[in-house]
């Protein structure tokens, strides 16, 4: 609309005005270029930095399970044209597993909690109090992730490792992965719980919005058929926001996959695939922080390059997951 209008006006403008318009348009276009450039820059620089590691590690990087910087005091050797420490090998299968397992656990907890609490806020809480009540859940999103980590460290770890996990191991021990030693509280399940709390507000806020956008006509029709309010919400409203729920769940998954500080503080940072749901593990994001220091001791630089390769994987994973989530959510909003 404005395009047509402005084009017409443009011809009647004096030269000075036209110049101003040109500066405005070009300037705006240049500024708008920055975000795409930054995204491309992220990809370019991480790929450049990781390139020697990509060549040295090959495909084994993703499927093997051995992060070994090699002998620190050994003389660097040449492998396929790359200088590395003797015995160095890099495999991050345990990180891929840890990242996916903790994020899926988080989403598994956050999905019902987020959707059901959104239903409660949108349909039970009276209109006037809704914003205030919604803030209770949605303010969780404003708590810095390092504060979640601190809370996990001083509250969740001691309480869960003393009371919850031993009980779970006793009762659910017959299920593979739920039995065995419960350890010190640093681990997969603890991280899943903390991450869930960080993902929940995203789900609640978006589902609440989607619910309130559902046509009231359908809702009235449900009531007219004699359905209870819960039945109407459960059978009429929720199916209509199904796609939105899927989209926002994937968005939440993306948040959990990349979360660093909270995981770093409660995961136990193990270099193995966890033996059960209570065991220490690590994620790609947390590993970059916990291991950069060690990697810097490698005089050949291959360790840092390999960490950059993890960063590159995380970036690509982030782009894929968020693209899918946004495409779904865009479709919902039309």
């Amino acid at each position: 609309m404005s395009e047509i209008v402005t084009t017409r006006i443009d011809q009647s403008l004096p030269a000075a005005g036209r110049a101003k318009r040109w500066v405005f348009r070009v300037g705006l276009g240049v500024v708008a270029l920055i975000i795409p450039l930054v995204l491309l820059g992220l990809l370019a620089f991480l790929t450049l930095q990781a390139w020697p590691a990509i060549q040295f590690n090959g495909f084994g990087f993703l499927v093997s399970n051995d992060w070994d910087l090699g002998s620190q005091y050994g003389t660097p050797v040449s492998v396929d044209g790359h200088q590395v420490l003797p015995g160095a090998s890099y495999g991050i299968l345990f990180l891929i597993f840890g990242t996916l397992a903790s994020s899926l656990l988080a989403v598994l907890f956050a999905l019902p909690a987020g959707v059901l609490s959104a239903m409660f806020i949108a349909e039970v809480v009276p209109q006037g109090a809704r914003d205030v009540v919604a803030a209770v859940v949605e303010l969780l999103a404003a708590v810095p992730s390092v504060v979640f980590g601190l809370w996990g460290y001083v509250v969740v770890i001691p309480v869960f490792s003393h009371y919850v996990y031993p009980l779970m191991a006793d009762v659910l021990g017959f299920i593979p992965g739920f039995g065995g030693p419960v350890g010190a509280g640093y681990g997969l399940l603890t991280a899943g719980v903390v991450l869930a709390l960080m993902v929940v507000p995203i789900i609640t806020a978006n589902v609440r919005e989607a619910i309130s956008a559902v046509s009231r006509g359908d809702v009235e029709a449900g009531f007219a058929l004699g359905a209870t309010r819960f039945e109407v919400v459960w059978k009429v409203v929720l199916p209509q926001v199904k796609t939105a729920i899927v989209g926002v769940t994937i968005l939440g998954l993306g948040r959990a996959l990349g979360e660093t500080m909270a995981v770093l503080m409660v995961s136990g940072n193990a270099l193995d695939i966890p033996s059960n749901i209570y065991s220490p593990f690590s994620t790609m994001a947390a590993f970059i922080v916990s291991q950069l220091d060690s990697a810097l001791q490698d005089p050949t630089g291959m360790a840092v390059d390999s960490l950059s390769e993890i960063g590159l994987m995380l970036l690509i994973l982030g782009i894929i997951v968020n693209s899918i989530a946004r495409l779904i959510m865009w479709r919902v909003r039309g």
């Binding site: 051995d66 992060w67 620190q72 136990g268 220490p280 916990s290 060690s294």
Partner: peptide, 19 residues
């Protein structure tokens, strides 16, 4: 295993990593 600041620890059931 090698010696160094980060070691590829032999896998032992129940072993714990602490920060």
């Amino acid at each position: 295993a090698h010696y160094g600041t980060t070691v590829s620890w032999p896998s032992v059931q129940g072993a714990i990593g602490a920060t």
